[in-house]
C-alpha cells in the first residue's frame, strides 16, 4: 500500500461552496465555504442534522457533484481524475444492492468494477470479512434484511483493500447488534492502518468510534476537533448536549 498517495492527505477541502438550483429562481446553498482536512489513519466523523449538507460534501469529495466554488483534493488529485480514486472506497447513503442478484454475484461485479489494488480480496473473503452468514450468500438480495444488505455494501467497498473509505450514514437503519458489528469492523479496518471518513446524524454512534469530529449545520462547519475539545468548548459533559449547544448557538447568532 506504500505509494505516492501516502505523501498526500487523503482528503483536503478548501472553501467549498455548493449552490443547488431549485426550479427557475430558487437556489439552495447547501455548503457555505467548508474547509477540512482528513489525516491518514484517523476515523473522522462528520455530524449534522438532516439536510446539513453532509451527503453533498461527501459527493463533492468524490467528484460526483461539482462544487460551485472551492478546491478539493482526494489523494492529492482532482477527484474527477481516475488516479484520485485509487485506494478509495465509498458507500453511498441508503445503499441497496441490486435486489435480484445474490451477494456472491454482486460481489463478483463489485470486485471487477474497481480492481485498483494489486491484490483484491476474493468475493467470498470479503463476505466473510463483513460477517455475512454463509446461508445468505446465494439468496437473492431482496430476501435479505437491512443489516445484511449493509454488510454486503461494506463488503463491496472492502473487496478492493482500500486505504481510505468514505461512508455516508453507515449505521443508520441498523439494529443495535448490526451497529455494534459494523463499528467493530470499522475499528478493525482502522487498526490495520485504514483511514475512515463517515457521516452521521446519530451522535451515539460516533462517540467511542471517531478520533475527530466535525459539526456541520446548514452548510457551515461549526467545529472540527477532538470530542474532548468540543465538550470543553461548550462546557458540557455529553456529546449530545455539546452538539445541541453548538447547533443552537448558531441559530441564536
Amino acid at each position: 500500500m506504500a505509494g505516492k498517495e501516502d505523501l498526500h492527505k487523503p482528503l483536503q477541502l478548501k472553501g467549498v461552496k455548493k449552490l443547488f438550483k431549485k426550479g427557475l429562481k430558487e437556489k439552495k446553498e447547501a455548503l457555505k465555504g467548508v474547509s477540512l482536512q482528513i489525516e491518514r489513519g484517523e476515523i473522522f466523523g462528520l455530524l449534522g442534522p438532516n439536510g446539513a449538507g453532509k451527503s453533498t460534501l461527501v459527493k463533492i469529495a468524490l467528484g460526483l457533484i461539482i462544487p460551485s466554488e472551492g478546491e478539493v483534493l482526494l489523494n492529492g488529485h482532482n477527484p474527477s481524475k481516475p488516479q484520485a480514486k485509487k485506494g478509495v472506497g465509498y458507500l453511498p447513503e441508503h445503499f441497496r444492492p441490486p435486489s435480484r442478484l445474490t451477494p456472491e454475484t454482486f460481489m463478483a461485479f463489485a470486485g471487477e468494477m474497481g480492481s485498483l489494488s494489486d491484490n483484491p480480496l476474493s468475493p467470498t473473503d470479503a463476505l466473510t470479512l463483513v460477517g455475512l452468514e454463509r446461508s445468505a450468500w446465494s439468496r437473492q438480495m431482496r430476501r435479505l434484511s437491512k443489516g445484511m444488505l449493509q454488510r454486503v455494501g461494506l463488503a463491496s467497498v472492502l473487496v478492493h483493500r482500500p486505504s481510505f473509505i468514505i461512508l455516508d450514514e453507515p449505521l443508520s437503519g441498523l439494529d443495535p447488534i448490526g451497529r455494534h458489528d459494523v463499528k467493530e469492523l470499522l475499528m478493525q479496518f482502522n487498526a490495520q492502518g485504514g483511514t475512515i471518513f463517515l457521516n452521521s446524524h446519530i451522535l451515539a454512534d460516533i462517540g467511542n468510534l471517531c478520533h475527530r469530529v466535525g459539526i456541520l449545520h446548514q452548510g457551515s462547519l461549526l467545529f472540527v476537533g477532538k470530542i474532548e475539545e468540543l465538550l470543553a468548548k461548550t462546557g458540557r459533559a455529553q456529546l449530545e448536549e455539546a452538539f445541541l449547544a453548538m447547533v443552537k448557538g448558531e441559530k441564536d447568532a
Binding site: K59, L62, L64, P82, K85, K86, V88, Y90, L91, P92, E93, H94, F95, R96, P97, P98, A110, M113, G114, L116, S156
Partner: peptide
C-alpha cells in the same frame, strides 16, 4: 435511487 449509480461512478468508471 438505490445508490448503485453513485457506487459505480465512485469507482474508476
Amino acid at each position: 435511487e438505490e445508490g448503485m449509480l453513485l457506487l459505480i461512478l465512485s469507482r474508476p468508471v
